[in-house]
Design a protein around this nucleic acid. Structure first.
Lengths: 218, 218
DNA sequence: AAAAAGTGTAAAGAAAAGTTAAAGAAAACG
DNA sequence: CGTTTTCTTTAACTTTTCTTTACACTTTTT
């Protein structure tokens, strides 16, 4: 999420990041940003310090009260003092205007890496694929991914520990909430169906087969 | 709700109105204002024309699409042309900066009187469908929606967290205040009846089935 | 290199879940 | 206490989802 009151700067950042496959939400004030945050989670927040209404530092504080989303402060050079103080409390990094998009993306990626693996709340996001346990919806790169209940549960399990391998038994017992009784192609079929649905929306492969063991998200 | 991007003006209006016992919400952009509106309803909206992001007239249009909340345009003198046009479509009144607080309050009270019956607080509104927990009445696009108690409670639950999926168990335990004992078509029948009633008043679908999981408001 | 074990997927049939009208039961009303 | 309204149950039907099957394919083991 980009929180920046200057419309043209906001749009500039939005365009640049979108071009690099980030999915962004634009907010034009601190309170708007906080409201967005109450509706859904974000992987990272870019926060301008000079905002109408609630000031940037107050916003950062509020955000961190709620959830530990990485915050990168975007500020003008002359706000340095305030910045330093913020870094010691709420913010995770800062960048001064004007900046190179390259640098911004690098800093974003550092923060995202930090945060990965920390499955939080009702929203699991991994590699552009996100799953919302509250609304039972899923999406890839912003496009809606329609899943049936079993498909959803399987993907939910795999995504909650990416790279970890789950046996068919693990999967069965999680998604069916029942004992697993040996050989059964059911899971293979569901995996296949999930892959087919994902294929239509992205080139990236999300489910990997681990021969003789099971499956994992990647 | 005060929609005004200039912080000091927003605060000025806020302070003045608060002092006169109005309860105000501050928004600093059109999109923020619209977001507030999707969460709750307001008795009246003060709308600045010059806004970052979405322009004031566009905002007014969007508001009126949703519900008939009185809008008073707050603008600079030189935006007169646009203002006149707005008055013919979306806005209910206008006032030019700089203005006397006295005048503003007078205009507000005119609009509120127009709109009187302003039941506040226990009102949930979402997408033109509103539910009043105090009077146990509901309406769609201004038309009355007559509901029985169970229907009301079900809709109330779904509407209080739009997009969130509620299982039959959730619904049963909320609306019946009792334990849910497995398979039961009762809820389906009520959902069906609610839909049938809504159908008569609107084309829009408000209750969505999430196969195998439950239902949600959309 | 052949055999065995494991996986992928289309298609068909089975099962589960949902919708709705209508009738009977229960509750509320006057 | 009868009438009216609301709620629940039933049942026929529709839709969606799940499982099975069959066969092709891949990897591992012998």
């Amino acid at each position: 999420m980009i929180i920046e009151d200057d419309q043209s700067i906001n749009q500039l950042i939005y365009d640049a990041l979108t071009k690099h496959d980030f999915i962004c939400t634009q907010a034009y004030s601190g309170t708007e940003g906080l409201m967005c945050l109450s509706v859904k989670s974000f992987d990272l927040i870019l926060l301008d310090l000079m905002l109408p209404g609630m000031s940037g530092d107050k916003v950062a504080e509020k955000i961190k009260e709620k959830e530990d989303t990485p915050i990168i402060i975007v500020s003008a050079k002359d706000e340095l003092d305030e910045k330093v103080e913020l870094l010691n409390s709420c913010a995770d990094d800062y960048i001064t205007k004007p900046f190179q998009i390259k640098e911004l993306i690098a800093r974003i990626q550092v923060q995202l890496r930090h945060k990965s693996g920390a499955a939080q709340g009702k929203l699991i996001t991994y590699n552009g694929l996100s799953i919302n346990k509250e609304t039972y919806t899923a999406s890839v790169d912003g496009q809606e991914l329609v899943l049936t209940r079993q498909e959803f549960k399987i993907l939910e399990l795999l995504m909650s520990y990416p790279a970890r391998v789950f046996s068919k038994q693990d999967i069965y017992e999680y998604a069916w909430d029942d004992f697993y009784i040996g050989e059964d192609k059911t899971i293979n079929v569901h995996i296949s169906n999930i892959r087919k649905k994902l294929e239509k929306l992205t080139d990236r492969e999300y489910i990997e087969t681990v021969w003789g063991i099971g499956f994992k998200a990647k």
